[in-house]
Simulated scan of single mutants.
Amino acid sequence: MTFSAVRGAKTLTLLLLVSSVAACGLPRSGPHKREIFAGSFEKQGDAFVVPVNRFVSRVTAVTPAFGFNSNFRSADLIGSDVIAAGDTLGITVFENVRDDPLLGNSGQRVSSLDQVQVDGQGYIYVPYAGRIRAAGQTPDGLRQAITRKLDTQTPDPQVSVQRLAGDGSSVTVSGAVGSQGVFPIERPTRTLSAMLARAGGTSVPVETAIVRVTRNGNTSQIWLQDLYDNPALDIALRPGDVIVIEEDDRSFVALGATGHQTRIQFETQNVSAIEALAQVGGLNTQLADPKGVFVLRDEPAEIANSLLGRTDLVGDQRMVYVLDLTRPTGLFEARDFMIRDGDTVYVTEAPFVQWQKTLSAITGATSAANQASNVGN
């Protein structure tokens, strides 16, 4: 075989290999920037592509609004010694007779009634005094009521009433706390923060902890950090309150030329685009195009109409927000633009990366052609 024929065979083999690589497509982490723009609404696509600026950051900055309603905030502290249905009482009666006491045996002047349960209607039963209303009274008020009932049957009885921790004035605490359970409302634990401390505090970071309180079928919630920062949110508790501590489950997904491609849970109430990139190790310096940082989101029609100056959009709209970190204000825009639950943060590869991959493919194809030629020779 002549030299020209060998050279022609090598060239043909190279062209076939390069054509094969081009047909299959070069490996990459996702779409190019131009491909994303090609899917825009302006080019007959189904997504609106919007460059990020101050106006966009302000309109899209939506944070979950938590707070207790007026029914929770207006409740006053309950008296720590007010008796409620379900409470347990300890009652002691001292009689001024020795030979024939009303309640005790002969010679027994002190009679103790331990673990007296207040029934569902709020009453207790005391021998010789009968059924007495206890719920809503203080121990001293109940003591006087029992004394009046017994005074006609035994001379000058001395009565003491002690409210024990019971099921009547109690709340349920569950979720991400140190100790879950049913806890009585006592003098030191009449407010939300005090009861959480009684339950051992939260077992998740304060910055991402949500406190949910249910009372009489109504539920309100706040950030735990807001509770600590604002004493006005430290509501008074009521019997039967259900308190649940949960960790914020909002998250976003990072893809493309970032340090890590993964799902990231929010670590604070608000996460900016620059913080989101930092959480995944920033941009991959070998691959990333700092002009091609995208945030993909389904935006409510109200926000989409405001951004686009329209009024006709209905339902959620696909939005693609573009951040160019090379602009003089690019990093400021990334700092001000807030990430929301369910967002996808995608970073495209730099154009030169594709050139490198193409050259690598051609180089590899040439080497393969040479090897094939050598084998043939």
Rank of each mutant, 00 (worst) to 15 (best):
residue 307 L to I: 14
residue 302 E to F: 11
residue 296 L to G: 10
residue 279 Q to E: 15
residue 293 V to R: 02
residue 281 G to E: 13
residue 270 N to T: 15
residue 345 V to N: 00
residue 279 Q to N: 14
residue 349 E to I: 02
residue 353 V to T: 08
residue 298 D to R: 08
residue 341 D to R: 04
residue 278 A to S: 15
residue 322 V to S: 10
residue 321 Y to T: 06
residue 322 V to R: 11
residue 298 D to G: 05
residue 336 D to Q: 12
residue 326 T to Q: 13
residue 277 L to A: 11
residue 277 L to T: 07
residue 333 E to T: 12
residue 342 G to F: 08
residue 273 A to T: 10
residue 349 E to Y: 05
residue 270 N to Q: 15
residue 325 L to I: 07
residue 351 P to I: 09
residue 325 L to F: 05
residue 338 M to G: 14
residue 279 Q to P: 07
residue 340 R to W: 02
residue 330 G to T: 12
residue 342 G to Y: 03
residue 344 T to W: 01
residue 265 Q to C: 05
residue 296 L to W: 03
residue 334 A to R: 10
residue 337 F to Y: 12
residue 303 I to V: 15
residue 276 A to I: 02
residue 334 A to C: 15
residue 326 T to E: 10
residue 353 V to E: 03
residue 304 A to Y: 02
residue 324 D to Q: 02
residue 317 Q to S: 11
residue 306 S to W: 07
residue 342 G to I: 07
residue 289 D to E: 04
residue 293 V to F: 06
residue 283 L to C: 09
residue 315 G to E: 09
residue 283 L to M: 14
residue 336 D to Y: 12
residue 275 E to Q: 15
residue 291 K to D: 02
residue 315 G to P: 07
residue 277 L to E: 04
residue 328 P to K: 02
residue 308 L to A: 07
residue 348 T to M: 04
residue 273 A to G: 03
residue 274 I to C: 03
residue 278 A to I: 04
residue 288 A to P: 05
residue 273 A to Q: 06
residue 276 A to W: 00
residue 291 K to S: 11
residue 346 Y to K: 01
residue 319 M to G: 00
residue 298 D to W: 12
residue 279 Q to K: 15
residue 287 L to G: 04
residue 290 P to S: 10
residue 291 K to T: 09
residue 337 F to S: 08
residue 305 N to G: 05
residue 338 M to W: 07
residue 345 V to M: 12
residue 316 D to G: 09
residue 315 G to A: 11
residue 271 V to D: 10
residue 353 V to F: 11
residue 291 K to Y: 10
residue 265 Q to A: 14
residue 345 V to E: 02
residue 311 T to F: 13
residue 341 D to W: 05
residue 321 Y to S: 09
residue 317 Q to D: 08
residue 289 D to M: 00
residue 340 R to D: 14
residue 282 G to I: 02
residue 342 G to V: 10
residue 288 A to L: 07
residue 266 F to G: 03
residue 352 F to W: 14
residue 307 L to P: 12
residue 330 G to W: 03
residue 323 L to F: 06
residue 311 T to Y: 11
residue 334 A to N: 08
residue 326 T to H: 03
residue 284 N to G: 12
residue 266 F to K: 07
residue 327 R to Q: 14
